[in-house]
């Protein structure tokens, strides 16, 4: 069976310090996987490398068997909430429509049908009443839902989400998890950078424990063990020394 996401020998370095080292990963279609690891473990870097936002020093990444550039329209992305300026003068609807820009192509503006798609995505995240709101008037959880809606309209096969549950209220957390589960049951592949170890077992099927290197990955029930966690988090490990 074709992997949804296939990462081989991926090494990423800032200057000459490795942020990811020789990481291998296979994610089968229909998997809901958490990426877990301490700060600076390279979780965000892994997501960005898969999306082609960062050029790796070495390694091969394939999504649905193809390089990212070829399948970009089948990949949805939810960046960290803090990565944008929420005081930007735009509405919830506008942000969600941005998910369709790739499909729209140059110059064409979003029309009636695009608005329909956006509204139904907003309904899924229970934000349809807010479509005209300016984004700075939203709470953290609402902002996160808007980002999720933007990814939903991409109607992708593979979703990459960077800390979608960071700093959201309990209601939003449940709403998001419900959506993640429904994505999985419709055969989508979802990779989620996750920080809360308590909830990994109940929310996700598979987990990747990452700390610059891949510690282990596989079904939560098998690999999410105390020993592996100690291995991932225990004894803060130094980054490889510069040869110079």
């Amino acid at each position: 069976m074709q992997s949804a996401v296939e990462v081989r020998d991926l090494t990423v370095a800032y200057r000459e310090n490795p942020v990811l080292w020789d990481v291998d990963l296979d994610v089968m279609p229909g998997t809901l996987m958490a990426i877990v690891g301490p700060n600076g473990a390279g979780k965000t870097t892994l997501i960005k490398a898969i999306l082609g936002l960062i050029k790796p020093a070495a390694g091969r990444i394939r999504i649905l068997g193809k390089p990212y550039q070829k399948v970009a329209s089948s990949v949805g992305y939810v960046p960290q909430r803090g990565s944008v300026d929420w005081d930007f003068p735009t509405s919830v609807m506008d942000v969600v429509l941005m998910g369709l820009y790739g499909r729209l192509g140059w110059i064409r503006r979003p029309g009636q049908s695009e608005h329909q798609v956006a509204i139904s995505a907003l309904k899924k995240v229970e934000m349809d009443d807010y479509s005209d709101r300016q984004i700075s008037q939203l709470s953290g959880g609402q902002q996160q839902r808007v980002f999720l809606a933007r990814a939903l309209v991409q109607d992708a096969d593979v979703y990459l989400m960077d800390e979608p549950l960071q700093g959201v209220d309990a209601t939003t957390e449940h709403a998001i998890i419900e959506i993640l589960h429904s994505l999985r049951s419709s055969g989508k592949t979802v990779l989620v950078v996750h920080h809360d170890l308590q909830t990994v077992t109940s929310y996700f099927d598979e987990v990747l424990l990452l700390n610059i290197r891949r510690i282990v990955s596989g079904p939560v029930s098998e690999v999410f063990t105390d020993e592996n966690l100690r291995h991932t988090y225990g004894g803060r490990v130094a980054i490889i020394k510069n040869p110079a």
Binding site: G52, S83, M98
Partner: peptide, 11 residues
Amino acid sequence: FDREFAHSLVL
């Protein structure tokens, strides 16, 4: 608004 997202759409 969101340069990285634009990048991810291969703009």
